[in-house]
């Protein structure tokens, strides 16, 4: 059997871990963002295995409630012909008539 860690070492690590976990996730994972209204018909993302997939289910180009993962910051630069702002959006929106 290996030597267990002491209570003090565990407490310090747990305290540090809380600080680590509290720092914004942005730096670690979020180089991507969900972008609504930019996917072409049937090309939206989202996949979780057989029977649950909503990927590739969008019915029209630039559907307002379908999203794609795009590099962070690029979403609101991407043209969307259905979006009221003319660009992709970070939340779903109701399409304007093209």
């Amino acid at each position: 059997m290996n030597k267990p860690m002491t209570a003090a070492a565990l407490a310090i690590a747990l305290g540090t871990a809380m600080t680590i976990a509290a720092t914004p996730v942005a730096a670690q994972t979020a180089d991507k963002e969900k972008c609504y209204g930019v996917a072409l018909k049937g090309k939206n993302d989202c996949k979780a295995g057989a029977g649950t997939s909503c990927a590739g289910t969008s019915k029209i180009d630039h559907q307002g409630n379908a999203w794609s993962m795009v590099p962070k910051g690029s979403c609101e630069q991407t043209a969307s012909k259905t979006s009221p702002t003319g660009k992709g959006q970070l939340a779903e929106f109701k399409e304007k008539k093209a």
Partner: peptide, 28 residues
């Protein structure tokens, strides 16, 4: 396995084991 023992096993398996970073990973 209890917290202290689990951390001890990890340290034995990998001298560079960083408990705080691992807990941070789980919490995050």
């Amino acid at each position: 396995v209890a917290f202290g023992q689990a951390a001890g096993q990890a340290l034995a398996a990998d001298a560079g084991f960083d408990l705080a970073a691992s807990l941070g990973l789980l919490i995050r």
